[in-house]
Structures are given as C-alpha cells and as structure tokens.
Write a protein that binds this DNA or RNA. Structure first.
Lengths: 189, 189
DNA sequence: GACAATTTAGAACATGGATTCTAAAACTGT
DNA sequence: ACAGTTTTAGAATCCATGTTCTAAATTGTC
C-alpha cells in the first residue's frame, strides 16, 4: 500500500494550508506523489476526501478542548477552553485551516451519505461537556447560559483567531480571548 | 439602459444571500432578468462584478462605523463602533454576506487590475479614524494599543456575528459584543 | 511459481460554468 | 427617417476540474 488514506489526508492538509478555498484533487495528488486515480481508489469523491479531512481535524482539536472543559473550578475551565483555540491553531495550522473548509450545520445536509452520520454526531460529546460546564459555572444550565458559554468558549475565540489563520497567530490573541471569555461568561451572573 | 451596473449588483447581493460561496454569473443574470451577455457588457468579468459588490458593501458599512468612531467620550465610541457591526449586519444582511466574499488582504493581490487601487485604499479612512480613536482613548497611539482597539471594534465583533450571517442575528450578540469590546480595550490601560 | 486480489497509473471522458462572439434591437442626434 | 452608437440577446466556445476506465504492476496465498 503505497498511499494510505491518512497519507492522502496529510497531503490534503498541507495543500489546504497554502491556498484559499478547497484544493483541486489534482493538487492533492501531486502533493502526495500519486496520480489522481490512486486518490479516487481511496476516496469515492473529492467531497468525501475533504469532509474526512475536516472530521479528522475537528476530532483532533476537540481532544484538548474537552480536557480544558473538565478543569476545576468551572471559571478556569471556561478560560482554558477559550484559550485552547488560539493555542491549538498556532500549533496545528493545517488542521486549523482544514476546519474552516466547512461548517457543521451545512455539512449535515451536504456531506456525502457515507459521512453524514459522523458529521451529525461529531459535536455531541463536546456539547454534552458544554452543558455540564454550564451547570458547574452557573448552577443551572438554561438555554440562555448554555449559549453564552458556547459563545465565550468557542465562537468568540474562533472569531478572534480566524483572520490570522494561514499566517502566524500572535501571542496577545490568547489574552484577548481570555478577556472576552471572562466578559461574556460574566453576562450570565 | 435596461440593466444598470447597480441593478446587477443589487441582484448579485440578493443571490449571495441565498447560497454559500460566490454565485455563478448565470444565477446573477437570472435574478436580474438578463442573459449573461448583458452582465458581461457591464462588467469585464465575474471577479470584477463580485469585487465591485464587495467594495460597495464595505463602503456602505463603513459610514455608520465611522460615525460611531467619532463619538465622545472615546470609551463610548469604542463600544458604539463594536455594536455597529451586529446592528448593521442585522439590518443589511445582503451587504453583510457580500463582505464575507473576500478578505481585503487577499484582494489587494488578487483583485482585477481595474479595482486594485480602490481595494488597496478602501480602509484608509477607517484606519485613520481608528488611530485617532486610539489616541483619544489611551492618550497615545502606539502599535500595540492600535491593534488592540482594532480587535475590540472590528475583529471580535465580526467574529461574533459571522456564524449568524445568512440567518437572523440574535439581539444578545450586541451585548456580548459590547462586553468583549470593553474587556479588550481594558487590556491597554 | 501460479493464480487471484489489491493497488497503482494516467489517459480519456464529462460537466459546470466563465467568457466570447455575432446579430439584432433600441436608442441618439441630425 | 437615417446613420451611428449603445445595449441586449443568447448561442457557441473554452477551460478547469471532477470522475471514470482499463491496463499494468504489485502483493498476498496456496
């Protein structure tokens, strides 16, 4: 087996880092050193390849994020989870870029049949942890506070990092992220 | 003149609102009720059309943003400028979506020759105001504090709004944006 | 070593969509 | 009304890229 699925995904990740938008199959093939036919031997379609890359990247990211969510006390967990986003993106630029290829909400409808289920459930564990974190932080986990913490730990940090993806992520972003996370979380007190 | 440039841009804006990514020329033509040839009579290329739309949307957005930047005292201006972003995106969903079509940094290189200059200078006025606002807010406008205020008034608000573009923008986003703006701005004190 | 299954190769094909082209229609000024 | 200019029309062309196909090479098995 000259070209494993992971070899191809690794190459795809490298390519994604160097261009904006989704790369053509031919470019991924060139990067891994295979003809396009070989790529199609592993993946049924370009979509399946890129969505697989997205899934793999998201899962890799979630590991550290979930670890941060479990910290005590809850207030620290919120800040740590938020900080994890710029930190992860700095250390894993290719995965970070790959995660921007799709948004989960769209993929649930648009992903190839074979990956639809994985896409639909990929956030389940994280969402469960978010709910638990909300309960720990506020005592209750009503919808409003859950949304608030999701914003503080995910949306806002991601929004701050996003413009830097593709280049180096300045260190001060981490502090700005932490400050925002605290400020947003405080709205629920 | 059956189809003015602005008619076509208006149609393009409407189309952009209904799909993710840049629309095909044929779809814009259909929306304005013209054959594709007529679209190409007004715009040299699809890129020129879409970059024009981007420019028009950015300029429309900047009006209110700059007004907010001029408020006194400076601390209020920071919060008002930040808030302007979710407010504008809520009231002008099509323009908001159009602004996401490109990032200025990329366009400076990639835009059609004829629009390159406009793209390069489109932020000049806003940047000048940001610098002045920084001076008012902190007494000095060193690079660090200028970056901080740009993050507080633009990057962070935009990051918070972004996931909601295409749908309704919840009202609480405005408060989260304001809280973040204050928190980030405070890092420079 | 021979046979089967897997994997690689890359040329051929298909398609969506941008762009061009030419003719017709609609204006404009005289 | 006429000549000239602008604008509309939409079919034809072109191109990038995704996908398929068939043959060759490799690997695994008895």
């Amino acid at each position: 087996m000259k070209f494993s699925a992971d070899d191809i995904l690794d190459a795809a990740a490298r390519v994604v880092l160097t261009r904006s938008g989704s790369p053509p199959v031919a470019e991924i093939a060139r990067e891994v050193g295979a003809p396009v036919g070989s790529v199609y031997y592993r993946f049924a379609s370009r979509d399946e390849l890129l969505v697989s890359l997205w899934l793999r990247s998201v899962r890799d990211f979630q590991q550290g994020f979930m670890a941060a969510c479990r910290l005590e006390p809850a207030a620290d967990a919120v800040v740590a989870a938020a900080r994890h986003i710029p930190v992860y993106c700095r250390e894993h630029p290719a995965e970070a870029r790959a995660m921007t290829l799709y948004r989960q909400a769209e993929l649930v409808r648009a992903a190839p049949e074979s990956l639809r289920d994985e896409v639909a459930t990929v956030n389940d564990q994280v969402n469960a942890l978010s709910l638990e974190l909300t309960r720990r932080r506020y005592g209750v986990a009503d919808e409003w506070r859950t949304t608030l913490l999701t914003t503080a730990t995910r949306q806002c940090p991601y929004g701050l990092v996003r413009p830097h993806l593709g280049g180096p992520i300045p260190d001060w972003i981490d502090d700005a992220t932490a400050a925002c996370a605290r400020a947003i979380a405080a709205l629920g007190d």
